[in-house]
Design a protein around this nucleic acid. Structure first.
Length: 483
DNA sequence: CGTCTTTGACCAGCGC
DNA sequence: GCGCTGGTCAAAGACG
């Protein structure tokens, strides 16, 4: 099995090498392992007469090498995790001295609408430190606990068994007895949404889940129709998503997710699902505790409130993840951030830009960026063109991260994995952003000091960024494969 | 034949 | 109350 996968991967490695050579980019020293692997592959291919035993030996060597790489990445991950904890502790110390909403990322772990802001944060921090002894992954636990909470909220049968039931309850005339329940329902209707902006030529962005289109509308202010999808992995899954192209940039696909899955999701869907869940959690916690602001910059992250240019929209708190990675992403993004000056925002909305950096500095040069871009392109091509290669990478990352924390067989390991992956992705992407916007941010100061990890971090950034692009292209590929 | 998409109709919420 | 808009439903058609 491993040999088979390796061969499949090697085919793409050869293609990658060809692409890299054509584009005239030389790999960094940190990528020499990949380079060696490529050369080894070429040798393998050039000697078809070699016995299967030799191939097995070669595959074993490759496996050993990959294991070493994974161990190294795992160590980096652990050190990053510990650094993140230090930063969180620093942040909590700062927060106690002021009421400023500094700890946006800390509030990932909860969304309780009741209780004071300080109590909530203290509880989160406290629970993290307590759980830290169990899992050595407090952040993951914090996220996970939040994820559980949000999942419970949506998947709780007494609250919302299905979208149909929810709509029935909404349609049902409210009596005095149902008043409290009605308020609850209203709160759930007001649940958070997560928008993901990606550059995608396909009609929809591939996120690993199975969706069924149930409607389409042309919304005001955008000639591009908005498509409505519901998750069909489980018949009663409440998750919906809306897909609409950006009016200002047709290449940008805006996918809005609503609700949480009440069923096990495919591995390929965990990244997006956990990302959206975590983002929604962050938004809910933020909206429940802080005052909406027109535009704020917290720790280098751009947080803006918006009404999505339509004052008639129901008050859905929305968080937007910008994965477009284009220089115009912020400018086109203003479309969402723009609201009439005479119309104060009712709903807090949060924007996070996880796109790749476009401004170079001394630690992240333009050459690095161009190499990263070319690597991203080649990896994207390789990933999108072969599902096996995709599975290989997915499995490698899953095992890499999974071994660091969760126990196999534990019911929560999948979530832990996905959250760890997500955490790494966010951390790496944010780190790659730190040159332009995060420099000086207390969150990522620790990362800057570790120059020895910059290479791997950049690589990870490219990988995580490309993963979404690859996913976007996948939808198109899948569709074409279907037709 | 089953599944999925399309599309017009309907409903609820909101502003005026 | 009326009109507008977003969101959903469901019948009809397309597709494999």
């Amino acid at each position: 099995m491993e040999v088979l996968l390796m061969n499949m991967a090697d085919d793409h490695a050869v293609k990658q090498e060809e692409n890299i050579t054509q584009e005239g980019c030389s790999p960094e020293p940190s990528k020499t392992d990949i380079g060696r692997k490529v050369h080894k592959t070429v040798d393998l291919k050039s000697s078809p007469s070699s016995s299967s035993h030799d191939e097995l030996e070669t595959a074993k060597e490759e496996n050993e090498r990959l294991k070493m790489m994974l161990e190294q990445i795992q160590e980096n991950y652990k050190s990053l995790q510990s650094r993140f904890f230090e930063i969180i502790k620093q942040g909590s110390a700062i927060e106690e001295g002021s009421e400023e909403p500094e700890l946006v990322s800390l509030s990932l772990g909860r969304s309780s609408p009741t209780g004071s802001k300080k109590d909530d944060k203290k509880t989160t921090i406290c629970s993290k430190t307590e759980e830290d002894d169990h899992n050595k992954s407090g952040l993951t636990l914090g996220l996970d606990s939040k994820f559980q909470l949000s999942t419970e909220i949506v998947s709780n049968p007494s609250h919302e068994n299905s979208s149909k039931e929810a709509s029935k309850v909404q349609k049902r005339p409210s009596s005095d007895e149902d008043h409290e329940e009605g308020v609850e329902q209203k709160n759930q209707v007001k649940r958070a949404r997560v928008s993901v902006r990606t550059r995608c030529d396909a009609p929809t962005m591939y996120d690993g889940c199975q969706w069924r289109k149930y409607g389409q509308k042309i919304s005001k202010g955008n000639p591009c129709p908005r498509a409505y999808y519901r998750c069909t992995v489980a018949p009663d899954c409440p998750v919906r998503k809306q897909v609409q192209r950006s009016f200002e940039d047709m290449s940008i696909l805006v996918t809005t997710y609503e609700g949480s899955h009440n069923h096990p999701i495919p591995v390929s869907a965990t990244t997006m699902a956990s990302t959206t869940a975590a983002a929604a959690s962050m938004l809910l916690s933020g909206s429940s505790t802080s005052q909406p602001a027109l535009s704020t910059e917290i720790n280098g992250l751009n947080f803006s409130s918006s009404l999505h240019d339509n004052s008639r929209l129901p008050s859905y708190p929305t968080i937007t993840l910008d994965l477009t990675g284009s220089p115009s992403s912020f400018s086109s993004f203003n479309y969402f951030n723009r609201f009439p000056t005479n119309c104060p925002p009712r709903v807090p909305s949060t924007n996070l830009n996880f796109s790749s950096p476009l401004v170079s500095n001394e630690s992240f040069t333009q050459e690095h960026y161009f190499y990263q871009q070319s690597l991203t392109d080649t990896l994207t091509k390789a990933i999108t063109s072969d599902p096996s290669f995709r599975s290989l990478i997915s499995a490698a990352i899953s095992s890499m991260v999974g071994h660091s924390g969760a126990k196999p067989g534990d019911g929560t390991d999948q979530r832990d994995d996905s959250f760890s992956q997500n955490l790494m992705q966010v951390a790496f992407n944010s780190q790659s952003l730190n040159d332009s916007s995060l420099r000086g941010s207390s969150y990522f100061k620790g990362f800057e000091s570790s120059s020895s990890r910059i290479g791997s971090s950049n690589q990870s950034s490219a990988l995580s960024f490309s993963s979404f692009n690859a996913a976007s292209t996948l939808a198109f590929d899948n569709k074409q494969g279907k037709n």
